[in-house]
Design a protein around this nucleic acid. Structure first.
Lengths: 250, 250
DNA sequence: TATGTTTACTTGTTATGACAAGATGAGATA
DNA sequence: TATCTCATCTTGTCATAACAAGTAAACATA
């Protein structure tokens, strides 16, 4: 059968394989390709998108890294089944943790600003009071429902590099580690319960006065330099923070 | 400078890029390429291994996925800082933690019962559904203000011994360790936000509908036997749960 | 019928070639 | 001196091409 041809914007500054990856990701999420079903073969995708096989393979490889699909040599490419719940107290980014359980997540970047650090942020990151920092606000989605608001503060120089990254689909932790070479060590968390106000409620689809888990997280490099400071606001009804801790001897 | 040529066994059933990956990995581990130093460029590797660039890139890409190296567009490929050792956010009892910060605490024992385990408790402690367990309800005070309700479940035999202990001033954790000789290892926590109902509000002096931090904590011995299962309800306005977690190696 | 064999699919590996785009220092220019 | 341009390094993207190797079903043979 003649595959239908699809058009990708080759003028766009976005790489071809990224565009194809997005299209395929959407088809998996909207159910065009269902769990455990076979995806179109590489040669079919090559024909329908009118790109080379190398480009198709790069798109599929990325989706495989994200855990959305898996391949069987000689048979084909298949859509992954989301896995059951089970957990750990490792320091993980949200997307990382959910992806390892087979859940689909993405983030919506609400704002990306360079702002002077307030007292708390300056203290946490070890900066002067009015030094500039990057502030990134993201709403996190789990299975297409909003689940949290993340407010991330990073030193200006690092934040600036993130502007061109795909924050919608990649964890900041992973970018810092795998792309920028930072080695993440410990994190300090503070967890408390609070009530959603109107603006938070609007962002994560909660009524004012609903319970929210508020987490402050300061992440250090293995050299013990503070690197990333975040406020995380999780919907109390939809999320449980799970972790394992050990009995310290120190 | 003329790069030295290297030989790879092209007859081997192992793919070329895998062999190159192993060689490079060894050089990173044995210090030939040191942390934060630049690796040879792709074209250098292409010449020295006498393979195509695509093969070199596949090897480097895999090492990047493993976190051993990272790349900077336009600059080069660098060796990552090796990640530090193992985990542990510290597992502490409440009194223990507060005392170490100089706060005064005590507990009021609300009830001490021997009851049949419900489904959750039986599952967590690894018991049969209607086996008997000890249930201890305590209100915790910090500087004379109530701050949390703790509901503790222990196997019946252990709980019975606790009846004669001074639970008002001593942590159960410390009694288990110092008096009974149990060695506590990991704990699993689940943390979520909820609203206080009337009876909880009365116990910890909160209005109905106030935010509360609800924690489920299952503590294991170092032999990985579940020992102690607790529900902790903390006043959202008066308490922050703090912990440190570490970034685990894959 | 039972057992190989061929064939036609799939993904995996590798080569060669080309241009884009980021980084950086040397050299030209104001 | 300060700034801009450019040459030249780097990695990133994409094309075409070929063969290897795993899978499975159709087919041929004993």
């Amino acid at each position: 059968m003649e595959p239908k041809k699809e058009t990708v914007l080759s003028l766009s500054p976005v790489p071809l394989y990224t565009q194809i990856k997005e299209i395929l990701r959407n088809r998996i999420l909207d159910g065009t390709y269902k769990a455990h079903e076979q995806m179109p073969s590489e040669s079919e995708l090559t024909r329908s998108f009118e790109v080379s096989r190398i480009t198709v393979r790069q798109a599929l490889g990325d989706l495989q890294k994200e855990g959305l699909i898996f391949k069987i040599h000689g048979k084909g490419t298949y859509v992954s089944q989301p896995k059951a719940f089970q957990n750990l107290g490792k320091l993980q980014g949200f997307g990382e943790a959910m992806a390892s359980m087979g859940y689909e997540t993405f983030s919506q970047v609400i704002s990306f600003k360079i702002v002077p650090a307030d007292k708390t942020v300056a203290l946490k990151l070890g900066l002067g009071e009015n030094e500039m920092v990057s502030e990134i606000r993201r709403v996190r989605y789990l299975n297409r429902a909003p689940i949290s608001l993340d407010v991330t503060y990073l030193p200006k120089s690092i934040g600036e590099r993130l502007i061109k990254e795909d924050l919608a689909h990649r964890d900041i932790f992973l970018i810092l580690e795998n792309d920028y070479g930072y080695s993440l060590g410990q994190a300090e968390l503070q967890i408390e319960a609070m009530l959603a106000d109107e603006s938070l409620g609007r962002l994560i689809h909660l009524q004012e006065g609903s319970p929210v888990l508020r987490i402050e997280r300061l992440t250090f490099t293995t050299d013990n330099q503070p690197l990333d400071f975040e406020y995380l606001y999780y919907r109390g009804d939809a999320f449980q923070y799970r972790l394992r801790v050990e009995r310290g001897r120190i």
